[in-house]
Design a protein around this nucleic acid. Sequence first.
RNA 1: CGGGGCGUAGCGCAGUCCGGUAGCGCACCUGGUUCGGGACCAGGGGGUCGGAGGUUCAAAUCCUCUCGCCCCGACCA
Length: 492
Amino acid sequence: MADITKRSEDYSRWYQDVIAAAELAENSPVRGCMVIRPNGYAIWESMQRQLDDRFKELGHVNAYFPLLIPKSFLAKEAQHVEGFAKECAIVTHSRLMTVVRDGKVTVEPDPASKLEEELIIRPTSETVIWNQYRKWIMSYRDLPLLINQWANVMRWEMRTRLFLRTTEFLWQEGHTAHATAEEARAETLQMLECYRWFAEDILAMPVVCGAKTPRERFAGAVETFSIEAMMQDNKALQAGTSHDLGQNFARAFDVKFQDAAGGQDYVWATSWGASTRLIGALIMCHSDDNGLVLPPRIAQRKVVIVPIWRNDDERALVMAKAAELRAALRPVAGLVHVDDRDNMRPGWKYGEWERKGMPIRIELGPRDVAEDKCVLVTRHDGQKFPTPLAGLAEAVAGHLERMQSELYAAAVARRTANTHRLETWGEFLALYNGAGGFAHCHHCGQDACEAAIQDETKVTIRNIPLGTPNEAGACIRCGQPSGRRVLFAQSY
RNA sequence: CGGGGCGUAGCGCAGUCCGGUAGCGCACCUGGUUCGGGACCAGGGGGUCGGAGGUUCAAAUCCUCUCGCCCCGACCA
């Protein structure tokens, strides 16, 4: 087993090593695409289930729209096409033909099958969805329309990194239509709050909610909001976005409704998404030099029992007890895995479950069975707790809660320690030439100034945090007047 | 697309400068002894050395071209 590179040594190597060691994902034959292995997909399933339940509680329903979009659709919203045109995969033919080239049989697109209108593989689905909404929305009684879809999308990025940025990725995209601007804005903020809840309560990852600057706004949005998390290398990661689309897409796709008074207006839209990038965020927020660390609420399997034996009698004894415990833990920890492989010794299994991020490991041997106890080990801190079997379920439930809150607390503490209020450009440069982190600073709001900061330092305005008080100040870089602070960081 | 590194067994690597019948560790298979933090002994299987050309009696090694991966930058959820 290859060692995991230390975070302090090479952070991005560490990140890749953790993914490999925990068997989460690997590169595919197609550059930029990833194979999500069962351990990685289990995390995604857990994310899907919990987000989907929440979306439905908030009144949304799921639907599915096609992968392929007519090329012309993308051109209908001017900002939108500008934002996505450079990263679209295009379908041009509908079949292949075998040909012989230099004595070798190969396949090529059949020229006779060239499509009249080329198709785009969706980079996002606003256009197909709004094309359908035109047919579905006639009156205010059809509103609001609250639809989500779980799908894959493609964006042909130049440089990719497993989970953080892949050519194809999995996500959910909510697309809602409303009768008023106020209602659309409320929906946008409600879904931002939904992502905040998911990141903080489920992933134990603190985030900053805020509005994007115009330059960082989604292509076609009136306003974009994001949640921004801090990774262990002090860089920011945008972990979810929620967009107020105004009437832009309704105009582009001619989606009007009639109100109660008989007047006509374009509908107001939102869209919001979170992707498999969240898995990357999870890894970089909590994991350590021994491998993956998963907060219990997102771990599909939370407990593994490692039985220990020396002979068949002991094996029978310990396995019977393990089966009993498995049943007893079901209500508090879900499906418990009993690692009964007999071709490796316990020590090996301990290491393996640590790499894979299993929250709790229960060691159970003949001595334990004789004494009606076991050894319980929590992944995030490596602590061992001799635990009586009588109260095991309660103990496990307690440890799971403790892990969840300690992981969150540790992430908050790390973020607090690396978040600063800066007043001068010198301080700003010092921070980002050094440790980096989050910086709350005044900014003039000028796009050129924001661009200059990015050019000079790779630092961007992550967002303008919600609830930021008005406060007179001078722009961190140019000194022009500023009305409030914004959040700066280097980001993924 | 620019700069840097690298492609040899499933993984990690040596061998390349100086051409001569492909090796090491781990993993894997069989048998035995083991089993409370990464066991040990014995035996065994597995690679046309990223690909294509070329030079040569002979190429992992030299030459040309190509493909891919990783890191840094530009693009981005």
